[in-house]
Amino acid sequence: MAEAVGGAARLVPAAVSVLALALLGACGDDEPTAGPTGGTGAGGAGSAAGDVPFELVTTDDLAVSPDGGRLLADCWDGRCTWDAATGELAQEPDGSSVAVAPDWSTVARVDDGDVVLVGLEDGEVVQTLRGLADAEVTDGSPVSAVAYSSDGALVAAAGLDGSVRVWSVDDGSEQAAFTAAYAPQVLAFSPDGALLALAGGGPVEVRDLDDGEAVATVGDSGRNGALAWTPDGRHLVGPGPDEAPTVWRLPGLQPVDELSGVRLHEAAVAPDGRTVAVTAFDTTEVRLWRPAALGRPGRARTLRGHTGEPGAVAFAPDGATVWSVAADDGVRGWDVRSGGPTTAYDLPVGPDR
């Protein structure tokens, strides 16, 4: 699955199935706020940390439909789609994916070394993208990351051997190929589709898709996988020194801003290109960061409401709402202007309920 803003996607190769048996034990700069209100409320008290025996909602990615009306994430038994306004949940068993097309026409799945594009609504195979087979992998897929370009015309995938392939969605033809020094865990197309950023397992780098050559590499970047482009393609957000959220300016990936004291988990850039939503390791908070380098300086605001550590984060197409997702309490949303919580989103029913 892919984050809706920035074109980045991560896939843990040995855990492509979302049936992960991972046991899980409002905004204000100083004071926590009450939880979200409204919605149909199925999440309720059962969402408290320690009450959920399985990872009900995966946290690698959260996709937002083009009209902002629906949210999508993988769940323990398949795919979950929420109505963004009411919080109502629809579950599709066995519908898990590793990336979602920006127009929500298709989702990407992996089948051994192949990336298979299927219709999001009907599940019919649209395209099979080949070229990442790895005979040494016997207990999972050799595919470590998948991402769509922002216009949906291209799909990129990385293999555990460091190989990276880019295909045309239209006819499945290979458009670019190169080998990285490590197996990328996240890929992110630049908004114009000309560049591909890599991270996770090695230094952040940007490749030119015309020749596959590195445009720039950040030698002192963190090794966790989190990348988000600004809409104009002039800046890239990712893990800098000490894994702090860092803004780099293209083409040379010069560091121009940093949110110190935070270990970046996931990031998304708002449609206006000036605000970055950040989740961090070892905290249940979401931060709205306004880097001076992006033209709107200001200290980070803190959004509270999760009971577990959130992962993926995404903005509404109009930038008015930001959402994040945690394994034990699912999706949470906030009004960007006021920082107040929005709708409550239903949790999927687990196998033991």
Rank of each mutant, 00 (worst) to 15 (best):
Q91C: 03
E285P: 09
W82T: 01
G123C: 13
V143L: 10
G200R: 12
V18Y: 07
P297C: 14
L62H: 02
L129K: 11
V166P: 14
D74N: 12
G41A: 14
D161E: 09
G41H: 06
L154W: 09
R165L: 12
P53I: 06
R130S: 12
R332G: 03
A327D: 11
A214G: 02
P310N: 10
R130P: 15
A85H: 15
T37I: 01
P191M: 02
L117G: 03
D67G: 05
G43Y: 07
G35A: 08
R337H: 13
E92W: 15
D171S: 10
A133M: 04
D29K: 15
W76G: 05
L71I: 04
L288F: 12
V331L: 07
P32T: 02
T343L: 04
R274P: 14
T59Q: 03
S324V: 00
A277M: 12
L23M: 15
T275K: 02
V100F: 13
G46E: 15
T37C: 06
G305K: 13
P142C: 07
G225F: 06
A34S: 11
T246S: 08
A48R: 10
L120H: 13
A197M: 12
W104C: 03
A156T: 13
G162Y: 05
P36M: 02
G28R: 14
A214L: 04
P142Y: 10
S221G: 13
G119E: 04
A277N: 01
G7K: 08
D51P: 01
V143Q: 11
D335Y: 08
T279Q: 04
E88H: 10
P239V: 00
V313A: 00
A280G: 01
L209D: 08
L11W: 15
V110N: 11
D192C: 04
A197L: 11
R304V: 00
E243W: 11
G240P: 14
S144W: 13
V215T: 06
A183I: 06
M1T: 10
M1H: 08
P102Y: 04
G305N: 14
D329T: 08
E124A: 15
G238P: 13
T106F: 10
L303I: 09
G25M: 07
G6I: 00
G193A: 12
F54Q: 13
Q127I: 05
D103G: 05
A197G: 15
D192R: 09
T40H: 05
